[in-house]
Amino acid sequence: MLVEQKKIDEAVATIIGFGGTGILNCVQCGACSAVCPGVKAGFPLLCRNLIRSLLNGQLEEIIEDSSSWGCQACNRCTEVCPQGVRPQEVVFAFRRYQANELAFSTSAVTSQMNLYETGHAVFTDPKELRRQVGLPEVPPTSAFNKQAQEEIQALIDNGPMGELGLF
């Protein structure tokens, strides 16, 4: 691996731009990775190791790695981090970089479509189950509420997600 300052600067600027603002606080102590369920489960590029790669200027090289999508967003890393890095924000910033380059699995598209169309990322028709447990068939959510759905669509359209051509 070559150390190229230009690539390091670009990777750091990209991550900070996507919300991983604490990345340069990292001293690579590894406490985040010691408690990360994703690292434990075997995802190679999360927490400390992802930050190491980014601080080495590796950005495009790791764009196809799916580890970041295995992040549980549990934020235990943030709780134990002694330097205020907020590692989960770095993982999510990298995920956002990937997402905006459309580098994510097709299975993730469904929940975006669901969110856009019904306001619910997880959507199944609930009427029968709700009736069965004695609740009104229609929940008081956006699920069948046209105005609420339009509001959600307006918020999504008016941002980078709306420009990805998913909807």
């Binding site: 996507f18 919300g19 999508w69 967003a73 999510f92 995920r95 956002r96 997402a99 905006n100 994510f104 993730a108 929940s111 975006q112 969110l115 990322a121 999504i156 941002g159 980078p160 997600m161 990805l164």
Partner: peptide
């Protein structure tokens, strides 16, 4: 997995 993964 939705908006938080795309745009803050």
């Amino acid at each position: 997995g939705t908006a938080p993964s795309f745009d803050l």
